[in-house]
Nucleic acid binder design. Structure first.
Lengths: 218, 218
DNA sequence: TGCACTAAGTGTACGCCGTATACCGAGAGG
DNA sequence: CCTCTCGGTATACGGCGTACACTTAGTGCA
């Protein structure tokens, strides 16, 4: 019945527990105190491994980039970008708490390697310096924007979409004068809405557009 | 020297002051207590006009949609969408605090009219129900994603871009193995980077893509 | 004229939060 | 054996959102 030795705290253990807690309870549900509790430790013990909560968030984002991984270069730049975009979106779906902070936290080394790899893919595809930046900005804006949208609407399965739409509609006094929104609420449940399809639709449009830009510059 | 009558508190005054404070100090700098102070009132007085801080945030987002306004329909759907996107981005630039919360807060009536108008524009342009939703999702993802990116990078003038890039680069131990990022840091300052151009580049690509989709479905 | 009722603003207090600071015990190195 | 470092602890401070009970000023009606 005596105290078992208890595996020692590590920076990695702290970060992993933080990610787990944020997955389950959201960013608001992640407090240093609750996290310490979960690790069977007093709150201030965390500060021996992380400078402060901001640094913990930095580390969590970096952990997410590690989870995503950095893909090897490929001759098929469109496929490469598509796979990367899909993976980032998947990660943000598994870890919705990351949505607001992916771009705001201080970047870690893997994060930077990520950026470098994307830029490298675009330059390798033939984009000029300025166009590569444009393309990069466009892709990231779409992926992060879509993921944020998805997290905000808060449904994962196609069948939930209609339910979510009605919930939103119900929270508003009247849909008078909103014919298209009313149509959406009416038709969406039966339309077999699928967020994967939605994401791919936009992604295809983007990649096609990029290819055209590339072709026209050559 | 006696107390002047002091203009009475109003929900609108509270919301306006909150927007002002968030503009100046960010969302983190917006506390009920500081806001009350600014209004020369005790914190709890605010609760006579707003249910709680969440409701205040809802109202702030709604105020932002009011500021943006709902544009009248137009035959030129591309121009309409471009103007709207530009205006939304402009609003998010003036009020960076709104970046994380535009889509997550409970929507108010003007917000909904906004959505309805966009959907109406797309349906009017000839997009089928499902494609209109796809297009909508794509446009919003881009606009909000771009604005978030812009806010995260945190520079407004083209000339600041290089400085921001170096700052980011300096915060990282070494750029070894990051040739493209290194190139970016080296070339960006002199490249005359302009966020307006950046935004327009992606927006044009999007609208072009949408037009193609529209043409091919007809 | 008086009186109840309402709505706006106040005061106090509670339980969270992040974290500064001082402390303590165990193991390591001389 | 003594000191030093390092991981974990205890206590405490100031700030947060807000529940609850209160005063006070105005209003409608008898």
């Amino acid at each position: 019945m005596s105290a078992e030795p208890r595996t020692p705290l590590t920076r990695d253990r702290v970060v992993a527990a933080a990610v787990g807690r944020a997955d389950a309870a959201g960013l608001d549900g992640l407090s240093m105190r609750a996290l310490a509790d979960e690790l069977g430790v007093v709150p201030m013990a965390l500060y021996k491994h992380v400078a402060n909560k901001g640094a913990l968030l930095d580390a969590m984002v970096e952990a997410l980039f590690v989870e995503i991984g950095v893909r090897d270069a490929s001759a098929d730049w469109r496929g490469w970008l598509r796979r990367r975009a899909t993976e980032v979106r998947g990660a943000l779906r598994r870890h919705p708490w990351a949505n607001g902070i992916m771009e705001t936290r201080a970047p870690g080394p893997v994060n930077l390697r990520h950026h470098d790899a994307v830029l490298g893919c675009l330059r390798g595809a033939g984009f000029a310096f300025a166009d590569a930046i444009h393309a990069y900005s466009l892709m990231d804006a779409y992926v992060y924007g879509f993921a944020a949208q998805e997290a905000a609407l808060g449904f994962a399965r196609p069948s939930d979409a209609g339910e979510a739409a009605s919930r939103r509609a119900a929270s508003v006094p009247s849909s008078d004068g909103l014919p298209h929104l009313a149509e959406l609420v009416r038709l969406l449940p039966a339309s077999g809405y699928d967020p994967d399809v939605e994401f791919a639709w936009g992604l295809d449009l983007l990649l096609e557009g990029l290819e055209r830009r590339l072709a026209s510059r050559r």
